[in-house]
């Protein structure tokens, strides 16, 4: 029995090594001088540069991008993450409430129209979406960055299912007490959905923060770049450079993953519950 356990631990430790080691190595690289890395290959011990690369990336405009520094990109990433998550939650809760709690003639039509959006990921309709956003003059705006991403109705289905599981007696009791639809929604349903909202918030924040293709197309003005979008810039410099700035590139990679990773790790149990029960 004991022997078996040791075997299990070895497999798990190998798995952990596989998952964690690349990121540790990226972090180590960010503490070395790029020239040292280029001459001697990747290092396995921490370098003498400390967190200097982070300072450069965060505060100096012109490392990779000519006009913005990492702090501006961090701000944009936060706006995208929060804007997307909050927007999605508010809009999809409202829509799910209407579908579940109201009797109206167009209900099933509305449901199926919203359902259709699950069929087509943004990547598939990327070119016409871009053209429409361009025609609406929303290129290089936060709205153009965030709103089209909300079009997929995953959140609506999540809340629909949750509302379905809320016992009918609550509504009956509320109606007897004379509560109207708005009061019922704000005073009863929203507080009841707190954990669900938290779970979906985490998933949506990570999803928004990690967007790459859409921001790449929609933001050509560097003032709107997010951290993840900034990677495209790194690559262009990487290809052209004699000695690529490995340290700064990896500092960017680490910076771009810290906020979503922290949120997922800290609120792990909510996150897992939300993920498993909702599928995005």
């Amino acid at each position: 029995m004991n022997k078996l356990r040791i075997g299990d631990h070895i497999v798990l430790l190998l798995g952990v090594f596989f998952m964690v080691f690349p990121v540790v190595l990226a972090f180590i690289t960010s503490t070395h001088d790029a020239v040292t890395v280029y001459r001697e290959g990747l290092q396995f011990g921490f370098g003498d540069q400390g967190l200097k690369a982070y300072e450069t990336v965060l505060t100096k405009a012109g490392g990779f991008t000519k006009e913005v520094n990492g702090l501006v990109m961090l701000k944009n990433s936060l706006i995208l993450g929060f804007g997307f998550a909050i927007g999605k939650i508010v809009i999809s809760m409202a829509a799910a409430y209407a579908i579940v709690y109201f009797r109206f003639p167009m209900a099933s039509l509305c449901f199926w129209v919203i359902f259709c959006t699950l069929l087509l990921p943004l990547e598939v309709r990327i070119l016409p979406s871009y053209e429409i956003v361009q025609r609406l003059g929303m290129v290089n705006t936060y709205a153009g960055l965030i709103v089209p991403l909300i079009a997929s109705a995953t959140g609506t289905f999540f809340f629909r299912q949750f509302f379905m599981s809320v016992p009918d007696e609550l509504l009956e009791a509320a109606r007897i007490d004379g509560a109207g639809p708005w009061k019922f929604f704000i005073d009863i349903l929203v507080p009841l959905s707190k954990t669900m909202i938290a779970a979906i918030f985490i998933i949506m924040f990570v999803y928004g923060w990690n967007q790459y293709l859409w921001p790449t197309l929609i933001t050509t003005d560097e003032g709107f770049f997010t951290l993840v979008r900034g990677i495209k810039q790194i690559l262009q410099v990487w290809v052209g450079a004699q000695i690529p700035d490995y340290d700064q590139a990896m500092a960017m990679a680490i910076l771009a993953m810290i906020p979503p990773v922290l949120i997922v790790v800290i609120f792990q149990s909510w996150f897992i519950k939300g993920l498993v029960e909702s599928d995005k």
Binding site: S92, Y97, R103, F104, I114, P148, I150, D168, P181
Partner: peptide
């Protein structure tokens, strides 16, 4: 048990439906 209201469900659905129409149905 459900609410009966002529306009309220549409008001709740409006933001979602307009986003779907403009940024999903139209490009598709």
């Amino acid at each position: 048990v459900q609410f009966n209201s002529r306009w309220m469900p549409y008001a709740f659905l409006l933001p979602q439906l307009s986003i779907v129409a403009i940024f999903f149905l139209w490009p598709a």
